[in-house]
Design a binder for these strands. Structure first.
Length: 722
DNA sequence: AAATCCCGCCAGGCC
DNA sequence: GGCCTGGCGGGATTT
């Protein structure tokens, strides 16, 4: 966590300048070359900072090699060191610790960590002080070299919403050099970005930067594909299996004859079902496709929470890989890579799901949810979105999925969900909060401010058009509005990130809360609200850079409603515990929608890398046991209003919310409606609706009274079955 | 100990 | 044959 703060700062400050350059250049961030040069130079020249790097390089990393993709070179270069460097080397040789420190430092710089205040300070020290100091300070730990952080840095170089006129070309080599990493790492990032169409390959070693303009469309398409492929059902099915396993394990008896391990599940699917899959080539396993599939899982999930193992299982099955454990592990590793990038994009955040079995790592979608409403939707998914995916695997996948499902006719998603009880926790829970509250924030805030500035700038430049769309009133969020604007958004979108932000700046939070409260008051009729929302949505999505709404969970829960204005927002977030009912299908998503997910804000807010740790979002989450299906049924009526159209999730949410309200309190209801509306807004429109959702459970996050009180804000998840 | 995931080997493809 | 890509998984770090 601490680390996070640092990283964020770093990213924000230092970079901006650079970023600007890059952006301006249009073609590339090449301007960075400056940096690049530096890095290159560094080895050669004993620039203050450099010395350290050198030491590092030598020993550890090739990455640094600014020079060219060739790794080896760097090391060799190391030679040009300064006496200090040599000294360090010697020292490091003697002490592993020292060695590590140096390494870290080196890595750091190359990467540009200089951005960070942290880094800067270090550098300064270095310059002025002896090498020794340097060691201590810097420690480029693994985190600092993480893909998430690297991705943030990468993203920081380019405008989220580049002007249509400007075409930015990304040179992999240059980026690698400027960021001080191997090209291989850049591939990891670019592949994921490419899967979302943020970039596209234009030539060898060259990628074109598109930014987030088409993200909503891409997501919409992915969602559609996911629905078509019945990922939701597959997830439910797998969950069911797990539950069965657990039960049986607990009972010590095996009823199905399924093996104990998860693998069995995998086996079931993978093997028989999709024979054709064999054909899948390397591409099927590509990060790009995995990324798209992973995103689809979130988009079709009602709860918007996907556990890594579940995702891995589904992906393995599709690819027909053998279910063996090693495959599973490899898949999970890849998913971590993807998740890191997606986290940097602020599309997902790490959480933990606690089940009976224990805690499982999972990710929660915090990106836009309503993109469905946008106009462009119509674009055909297949073509625009993942042609490859579609062509190569889509048909196959669908087929497989159907078969699988068919086999398990017995499978009842609802049941499964019911059975499953999970808690979603942010890792850092208590500790994390502390941090936030403490001084750490200030920094973050500063970074955020910077980010916003940037955003604003960006927006003004390129995005204006997009932002314009944003709704006037309700949508104040749009790009135009920097921080403050956020509050407006709250209604529509809630993002975990928002929480973070809030935490950072109490004042802002208050504002939010106030607004929220308003919203809650509004409690407007769903219908009207919904309408508005719809209109708004597009705008929001499109433009806004940062609309972080207070944590989704909070709003969703309606906690603010209860007690008053969002007052608690700040506190709530911290304390709030979310409970996620078993099935993933919870409603949360609705709330979460975030207007604009801009990478920038995110970046700063959270260093992609470890936001996970931060929990603000999650905070301590308590698990609420899902209610019985019967309860769920109640919901049905409310739902009728909307009908489940393409966005079953939303419906569910509503339902869930309604339900919760009933159970919990009248107030809650009102709020819930509001939130639900927001989330839903876009969806009804969609064409795609998958009617399938039937199975899904719905969970509502409800703030418990206790929570509101402040101490432990807990949100209870109520789940209902449709 | 489990969760993460960095790092870079090495193979497929293309030029 | 060399370079670009990127799958893959050992093993180091963190949690």
């Amino acid at each position: 966590m601490e680390v996070n703060c640092l990283t964020l700062k770093d990213l924000i400050n230092p970079r901006q300048p650079r970023l600007d350059f890059a952006i301006e250049d249009g073609e590339n961030a090449q301007k960075e070359n400056i940096f690049v040069d530096r890095s290159r130079m560094a080895p050669k020249t004993p620039i203050k900072n450099e010395p350290i790097d050198l030491s590092k390089q030598k020993i550890f990393t090739p990455e640094r090699n600014p020079i060219t993709p060739v790794k080896l070179v760097d090391r060799q270069q190391a030679e040009p060191w300064t006496p200090t460097a040599n000294l360090k080397m010697l020292i490091s040789a003697a002490s592993p610790d020292i060695r590590d420190r140096e390494k870290k430092k080196g890595l750091f710089r190359p990467i540009e960590n200089k951005d960070d205040a942290f880094t800067d300070s270090l550098q300064l020290d270095v310059v002025g002080d002896s090498a020794v100091d340097e060691f201590e300070k810097q420690r480029p730990s693994r985190k600092q070299k993480s893909l998430g952080l690297l991705c943030q840095k990468f993203l920081a170089r380019y405008p989220s919403y580049p002007l249509s006129t400007e075409k930015t070309t990304i040179s992999l080599d240059e980026v690698a050099v400027s960021l001080g990493v191997e090209r291989r790492r850049i591939y990891d990032i670019v592949n994921v970005l490419e899967s979302l169409h943020l970039v596209s390959r234009v030539a060898k070693n060259q990628y074109g930067w598109h930014g987030r303009h088409s993200l909503p469309k891409t997501l919409r398409n992915l969602q559609r594909l996911g629905e078509e492929q019945k990922y939701e059902e597959q997830m439910a099915h797998l969950q069911q299996k797990e539950l069965d396993l657990m039960d049986y394990k607990c009972g010590e008896r095996k009823r199905d004859g399924c093996p104990d391990s998860q693998d069995p599940h995998l086996l079931d699917f993978s093997e028989a079902d999709c024979p054709s899959s064999s054909a899948n080539s390397r591409k099927d396993k590509s990060l790009r496709i995995m990324s798209q599939k992973f995103v689809m899982l979130f988009l079709v999930s009602k709860t918007k929470i996907v556990t890594l193992d579940l995702a891995a299982k589904i992906l393995i099955e599709e690819s027909q890989d053998t279910p063996d454990h090693s495959k599973f592990k490899t898949k999970v590793r890849r998913l971590y890579d993807i998740a890191n990038v997606l986290t940097s994009l602020a599309l997902i955040k790490k959480v933990h799901v606690t089940e009976e079995r224990g805690r499982k790592p999972a990710f929660k979608w915090i990106g836009p949810v309503d993109f469905s409403s946008s106009d462009e939707e119509l674009v055909d998914v297949s073509s625009s979105v993942l042609p490859e995916l579609k062509r190569e695997t889509y048909g196959h996948i669908q087929f497989c999925a159907k078969q699988k499902l068919a086999r398990h006719s017995s499978f009842n998603s609802v049941q499964a969900s019911e059975r499953i009880q999970r808690k979603v926790n942010s890792e850092p829970n208590s500790p994390y909060r502390k941090k936030q509250e403490s001084g750490g924030y200030s920094l973050e805030i500063g970074s955020l401010a910077a980010v916003y500035r940037r955003k604003i700038e960006d927006n003004s430049q390129g995005e204006a058009s997009a932002s314009q769309r944003a709704m006037p009133q309700s949508c104040s969020l749009d790009a135009a509005a920097p921080f403050p604007s956020l509050s407006a958004d709250s209604e529509y979108c809630v993002s975990p990130l928002a929480n973070q932000v809030l935490s950072v700046a109490p004042t802002d939070l208050q504002a939010f809360s106030a607004q929220n409260g308003l919203n809650g008051q509004g409690g407007v009729s769903l219908g009207s609200a919904a309408l508005d929302a719809e209109s708004l949505k597009p705008a929001l999505l499109a433009g806004q850079p940062l609309v972080y709404v207070p944590s989704a969970s909070l709003f969703m829960l309606c906690g603010s409603l209860q007690e008053g204005p969002a007052p608690g927002a700040g506190t709530e977030r911290d304390s709030r515990g979310l409970d996620v009912a078993a099935a993933e299908r919870s409603s949360t998503p609705s709330v979460q929608k975030r207007l604009g997910d801009e990478r920038r804000p995110q970046e700063e807010e959270e260093p992609a890398t470890k936001r996970q740790s931060r929990d603000y979002e999650d905070g301590p989450l308590s698990l609420v046991i899902p209610k019985k299906p019967s309860d769920a049924t109640d919901i049905a009526s409310p739902k009728s209003v909307e009908t489940r159209g393409s966005a079953p999730q939303e419906d569910l949410h509503r339902n869930g919310q309604l339900f919760a309200a009933k159970e919990v309190s009248g107030k809650v209801l009102a709020n819930c409606f509001v939130s639900s509306r927001n989330s839903e807004i876009g969806k009804p429109l969609k064409e795609n609706e998958s009617t399938k959702e039937p199975s899904l459970l719905q969970y509502l996050y409800v703030q418990s009274p206790a929570v509101t009180s402040s101490s432990h804000p807990q949100e209870h998840l109520v789940h209902t079955a449709r």
